[in-house]
């Protein structure tokens, strides 16, 4: 471990323990919300930013994570700490299967196909009344660990933030490995990377699986934070919302997912008076970044591409 990473780690851990003493419970709730949103957007960094496959299925995977963990808990008494990773694995398998469609469709058509997946999954949430509560939604059991129920943002903070941090580290590590390079190469030329012996379809499917896992774990952690699941939270507009976060933050780097989540969670706080125009603000942000700064905020902040992994080594 070099001195720089040591300093980075010490600052991070120090900040992690200091924040609960500095912020009110509601603010910690927002930190948690930023963390899970960043985790969900990180899934898009992997599948769209890194592997180049447009996915508008992220809200579906978030829903699978949330509903999966909540149903496992209410029906079979599986605690959330086990149910969330289990739902993540199920979502990853579903993502791998979805990834197989990339054999036949790409680009705009892939975007439409993944959008259809979101619509279908949302319909399933609405119509499988007996296990999902239908259109009315379902309450989420509390997150219990070691006999203690974590309910407030301040308590869930100790689960959500470390989980998010570990997953970000893992994704960052993979990006800076031979596998990350193979994903990035797949984005740039499928024909060439196949000629290097890389199984393109498998890598694209793995990218979808990874994004589904991150989305579902994010959704699973979001569920106890929100304490209630409403199927309307898992539709096509939400998929686009997550894509907007990833794009505005910067699709090419994990840091972009965090920056995007901070912007999209905090903007409503500063625009209290404009609540009804929030959708417009987000839409303008998305449009502005796509046209003017396609590399997103992280691309603006970390100018030299590839300077640091969290700045854009996901080229």
């Amino acid at each position: 471990m070099t001195g720089k990473t040591l300093l980075f780690a010490v600052t991070g851990i120090g900040l992690f323990f200091a924040l609960p003493h500095m912020l009110a419970d509601f603010q910690l709730f927002q930190v948690c919300l930023i963390a899970v949103t960043a985790l969900i957007a990180l899934g898009l960094t992997v599948v769209t930013g890194l592997a180049g496959q447009v996915s508008l299925a992220q809200a579906a995977f978030v829903g699978i994570g949330g509903y999966g963990a909540a149903i496992l808990a209410t029906r079979w008494g599986v605690p959330l700490w086990a149910g969330i990773p289990l739902s993540g694995i199920v979502a990853a398998m579903a993502g791998f299967v979805l990834g197989q469609v990339t054999l036949r469709v790409s680009g705009h058509y892939l975007a439409l196909a993944t959008m259809a997946v979101t619509a279908i999954v949302q319909l399933a949430f609405i119509h499988m009344d007996d296990i999902t509560g239908g259109a009315a939604g379902m309450p989420v059991p509390s997150f219990e660990i070691g006999g203690r129920a974590l309910t407030s943002g301040g308590e869930l903070y100790y689960v959500i933030v470390p989980t998010t941090a570990v997953l970000f580290l893992i994704v960052g590590n993979i990006i800076r490995s031979r596998f990350g390079r193979a994903f990035a190469a797949t984005r740039q030329s499928e024909i060439a990377v196949a000629a290097m012996g890389v199984d393109v379809l498998r890598y694209k499917a793995l990218a979808f699986a990874g994004s589904a896992f991150l989305g579902a774990v994010g959704g699973g952690l979001l569920a106890p934070l929100a304490s209630y699941l409403d199927p309307m939270q898992f539709g096509i507009p939400q998929s686009i919302y997550y894509m907007a976060i990833a794009v505005v933050g910067g699709l090419r780097s994990p840091a972009g997912a965090i920056i995007g989540a901070v912007v999209f969670i905090l903007i409503p706080e500063f625009l209290q008076a404009f609540q009804s125009y929030l959708g417009l603000v987000f839409a303008l942000l998305l449009l502005g970044f796509i046209v003017l700064w396609p590399n997103g905020l992280s691309g603006l902040i970390f100018r030299r591409p590839g300077a640091r992994w969290w700045g854009g080594a996901a080229r």
Binding site: Q188, I191, P305
Partner: peptide
């Protein structure tokens, strides 16, 4: 190799 080169241009 490829006729019109198929490199990973951003790497």
């Amino acid at each position: 190799t490829f006729q019109n080169t198929e490199l990973f241009g951003e790497m």
